[in-house]
């Protein structure tokens, strides 16, 4: 039966063809042409990508097949190896999100002595009190007052930043950069000075704090 000469398998990109063993190339060629030219039972709609595993035929025969497919408006390619376990990105389950992309959300005030360590970013709905510490691989966002020690981009990401409604930390660290609160500023004065959201990031080799809107 002619149906057994050509076998078709759906792949991520199109159809992969394989052929019954011991069938000569001319016979396969005529079979393909007849399939392409017949109206009934033609699986090869235009634009389909057809592939044949590498090494099935010698190079010149592959080239002939490519020409035939191209004439009928199909794309032809040589597949390098068997595709196993095709994992489509949309099929990934949520827990397969890499650690670095996860965000930790803290729903309370961080008090003295408490510490948050995360590979990814950290968001705090509350204050970060003096003596508390956040060490994050990503960014740090504090919806409250930051008085503790914050280290964003702890694994070397210089593009990381720290945002807080009221940014008066003891220390800010971003990647390898370091900055501490000025010694000569009165804490009460500091309270008044930055009563708006601010963002700390690295610019020209130093930590810069600038007001933001949000």
């Amino acid at each position: 039966m002619s149906g057994e000469i050509i076998r078709m398998k759906g792949t991520r990109t199109g159809l992969e063809l394989s052929f019954a063993e011991g069938v000569s190339f001319p016979r396969i060629e005529t079979e393909i042409i007849s399939r392409l030219e017949s109206i009934e039972g033609n699986f090869f709609t235009r634009g389909t990508e057809v592939s044949i595993r590498n090494g099935t035929f010698p190079g010149d025969q592959m080239a002939r097949l490519k020409k035939i497919f191209n004439q009928h408006g199909l794309r032809f390619s040589v597949a390098e190896k068997v595709e196993k376990n095709i994992d489509l990105p949309m099929e990934k389950s949520p827990d397969k999100v890499p650690e670095e992309e996860k965000m930790i959300v803290v729903n309370h005030t961080l008090r003295g002595g408490q510490e948050i360590r995360a590979k990814g970013s950290v968001m705090v709905f509350g204050n970060v009190n003096p003596g508390a510490q956040i060490i994050a691989g990503g960014n740090i966002d504090i919806r409250g007052t930051c008085r503790g020690i914050v280290h964003a981009g702890a694994f070397g990401d210089v593009n990381a930043f720290v945002v807080a409604d009221h940014l008066i930390p003891l220390q800010i660290r971003i990647a390898d950069f370091f900055s501490r609160s000025p010694d000569d500023l009165d804490p009460a004065e500091l309270n008044v000075k930055s009563n708006y959201p601010e963002r700390a990031s690295v610019k020209d080799g130093q930590i810069v704090v600038e007001p933001i809107k949000r």
Partner: peptide, 12 residues
């Protein structure tokens, strides 16, 4: 006040 803050954290 600092120590009280720490204690409140521990109580939590």
């Amino acid at each position: 006040v600092r120590d009280a803050d720490k204690i409140i954290g521990e109580l939590g």
